[in-house]
Design a protein around this nucleic acid. Structure first.
Length: 494
RNA sequence: GCCCUCGUAGCCAAGCGGUCAAGGCAGCGGACUUUUAAUCCGAAGAUCGUGGGUUCGAAUCCCACCGGGGGCACCA
């Protein structure tokens, strides 16, 4: 609607679709708006260049015959725009200046010019108010600090706090980089069921729900593992999935009940292959997203460069506690030893009915809190994961590793158990433990066992907690800061 | 579930037993043609999270509840 030669037509009334009396009449939102410049592009354009842009008004100030505002678009950057009385005419200037407020969405069309103070500015000669904000913006200087508000009304947090916006962009870039990396390794991205008849693939308490048409209860998946293995059995040798898992457990800074997990499975790989690939993936992602292989959190530099130390699970436990898991292979004996050493309280020790649970708790309590720099912790006792392959030289441990950084476990991976006889036996142990009251056991899926009986290639799988990884990359102290809309209690009054 | 802590207008925020609960931003009215959190003038906006209690008197002290944060417990 605006042409180049209308720019200097200071005495003509500019063409416009602006509702001049927005305050009086009922405002009706506009429809689409054609844009040809983003903020950084407009900033780079020379004086006199025509630009057509749309975005949110982040600042607006009027002073008699000129008004300045700042427009922010999806680039996240802001550009100044101006309305000038001597170019627009008194009536149009007055009407337009009155029709804009902070928080509104506007389309602007005009020519670039530079103010006396040297700021590159869009001299608006056609203004379209695209939509009004009825509620006020957060304080333009103080922003939004209340954490409750930041989580519940994330859109305000995103508008007011640049670091919040940056964090979610980092999250997005991280995930795209991971996709590209795996695609280049010839992986296929797949999607597997979230509604599952048996919550399998991990030791965790599931959410349950009900399917009306089938009149059948389902669990929300706690892990995609057994479905991804079915896909590999079907000939999709390298598969990955990035998706949500659900675990009906407590919330804290490193746990969410709904979290995003990357899982992949590669036929003919073992856990050693995965150690190499995941280290390279993490290093490459760090470089792509942050430009460095070092991350600083709470003043501590975490150095991801080079090889990472490899720590033996049982050796670490022994060094920290004096307890020899190689000798103590049975739950009651271990519990007595732990209690005797004063490592866990009676309640804590009693809370774990299984050997796996007790070993895991012991490790989390005594070893993991000391693991700050990126490291692999390898060869967990066999009982810990019923889906993992035993080590050939020492069947009491698994061909397994975890990556721990800053006391957070961000990766767990192992060579997969593909022997249907061993698998059935180990899942039956889980069923027995559940019968003894251990809720955190794996459910037995007959269909999965049947799949394995049809034959599965040797493979190794890996899980990486995306939320934790992104929190690490962005220095966020809690997972809630890297999830746009975290689950919270019901807001008061609702 | 337990412990600690916080909750004052749309936002930021002072007040921590004593007159009508500061101030700023945003919004509203006005002035101003080069601002950069523009400035100036004016008017307005608050069940002080909710409900009880103590006190002559409560935003301020106590109890309960709701919500946030941190810690513990549970748990990837």
């Amino acid at each position: 609607m605006t042409t180049d030669d209308s720019t200097d037509a200071s005495d003509d009334a500019p063409t416009t679709s602006t509702p001049a009396d927005a305050a009086d009449e009922q405002f009706r939102p506009a429809d689409r708006y054609e844009v040809d410049h983003l903020v950084p592009e407009a900033k780079a354009a020379s004086d006199g260049a025509r630009v057509r842009m749309a975005g949110r008004v982040m600042l607006f100030r009027k002073m008699g015959g000129i008004a300045f505002g700042q427009l922010q678009d999806r680039s996240g950057e802001r550009i100044q725009f101006s309305l000038r009385k001597n170019e627009l005419g008194a009536d149009v200037f007055k009407a337009w200046a009155a029709s804009i407020a902070m928080g509104d969405f506007v389309g602007i069309d005009g020519a670039m010019w530079t103010t006396d103070k040297g700021e590159h500015t869009v001299g608006v000669d056609a203004l379209t108010v695209l939509n009004k904000a009825v509620r006020p913006m957060p304080d333009k200087w103080a922003g939004v600090h209340d954490t409750d508000l930041r989580y519940r009304k994330r859109y305000l947090d995103l508008l007011a706090n640049d670091d919040s916006r940056a964090r979610f962009l980092t999250r997005s870039r991280t995930i795209s980089h991971i996709r590209r990396y795996l695609d280049d390794l010839d992986f296929v991205e797949v999607e597997t069921p979230i509604l599952q008849a048996a919550a399998a693939g991990a030791a965790a308490k599931p959410f349950s729900t009900h399917h009306n048409a089938l009149d059948r209860d389902f669990y929300l998946r706690i892990s995609p593992e057994t479905y991804l293995k079915r896909a590999v059995a079907g000939g999709l040798d390298r598969v990955y999935e990035i998706g949500r898992n659900f675990r009906n457990e407590g919330i804290d800074s490193s746990h969410l009940q709904e979290f995003t997990m990357l899982e992949w499975y590669a036929a003919y790989w073992d856990y050693r292959d995965n150690m190499r690939v995941v280290r390279e993936l993490i290093q490459s992602t760090l470089e792509a997203v942050t430009g460095s292989r070092t991350v600083t959190i709470d003043g501590v530099d975490l150095d991801f460069d080079g090889d990472w130390p490899e720590l033996d699970f049982r050796t670490e436990v022994a060094e920290r506690t004096g307890i020899d898991l190689r000798a103590l292979r049975e739950v009651d004996a271990l519990r007595d030893a732990v209690k005797a050493a004063g490592l866990l309280s009676d309640d804590e020790a009693a809370s774990q009915v299984s050997y796996a649970g007790l070993v895991d708790l012991l490790y989390k309590r005594t070893v993991r809190p000391h693991l700050i720099q990126p490291c692999f912790i390898v060869h967990q006792p066999t009982e810990l994961v019923p889906l993992a392959r035993r080590n050939d030289d020492d069947p009491s441990v698994l061909d397994m590793f975890q990556v721990v950084v800053n006391t957070w476990e961000i990766v767990k991976a192992y060579s997969e158990l593909v022997d249907p006889v061993d698998q059935r036996a180990r899942l039956e142990e889980q069923v027995a433990l559940r019968a003894q009251g251990d809720e955190d056991t794996m459910m037995l899926e007959e269909d999965f066992l049947e799949c394995m009986e049809h034959g599965m290639p040797p493979m190794s799988g890996l899980g990486l907690g995306i939320d934790r990884f992104v929190a690490l990359l962005t220095g966020a102290p809690t997972l809630r800061d890297v999830v746009l809309f975290p689950t919270l209690r019901e807001a008061p009054g609702s």
